[in-house]
Design a protein around this nucleic acid. Structure first.
Lengths: 124, 124
DNA sequence: CAGGATCCACTGGGATACTG
DNA sequence: CAGTATCCCAGTGGATCCTG
């Protein structure tokens, strides 16, 4: 367990977000999910092309973890030229749905209408 | 740019999730948000107590980033014993709302009804 | 073409000690 | 009490080379 470890939720809930974060915790995870959502049944190379900047290792490992987490489905046809297709599982689609509100929130962030704190974007 | 960097969304969307992930990307970020959501106007030490296992450094930095991102509001009264109170901004509350579906998804994960991949939780 | 194996660099996070 | 300052380690992501 390298992720969030709540000692047992003293308040009575586990919030489940940590579980979700465990799944989408990778740097490109959500984008892979997203790409798969918009381009069902994509092959490794295609996904790689869809995610400019990602390396094979990272894509491969993310895909493997996503598969292990049951949100991505992998089908490999053993043909002469190796061919593998990835797609979202039902659970993966649900995850994507659950991600929508967050996406919407993030999208309206830069120009929030009622931000009174005057906070600016500043990160490392 | 240490975060997700999409070259400009070739498909026409930025999905916004990456922006959101930037905000909640810390290990304890969501839990801090959560704690603040359930315990409005909490002080540093109290928050620390609410998040067993978190260190001062991390709590402080998360709080600072969360504040910079406009989701947490910080009020410091300069009294004799230093006193600072943290609370969620309106945007922070919206973020929390946006997090709910994800939390719900994560909560029902362990016992998914139709998981045929036979995947188990396996991480590094 | 799909990825496994390595090596490396970076940074996020933990522990501890100190200050206003 | 509410942080800040260091040091350090581990995990994660990146680049490259190599294989089925």
């Amino acid at each position: 367990m390298t992720t969030l470890n709540r000692p047992g939720a003293p308040d009575g809930h586990v919030c489940g977000i940590d579980a979700a974060m465990e799944v989408i915790g990778g740097k490109w995870k959500v984008l892979v999910l997203w790409a798969l959502h918009e381009h069902p049944r994509r092959r490794f190379g295609e996904l790689r092309r869809l995610l400019p900047g990602i390396t094979e290792k990272v894509l491969a490992s993310h895909l493997r973890e996503l598969e292990a987490d049951g949100v991505v489905h992998r089908v490999s046809y053993d043909e002469v030229p190796p061919r593998v297709e990835y797609s979202l599982t039902e659970d993966g689609k649900r995850l994507n749905d659950a991600l929508q509100p967050l996406a919407a929130w993030g999208r309206r962030r830069p120009v929030t209408g009622g931000l009174e704190e005057g906070a600016g974007r500043s990160r490392s």
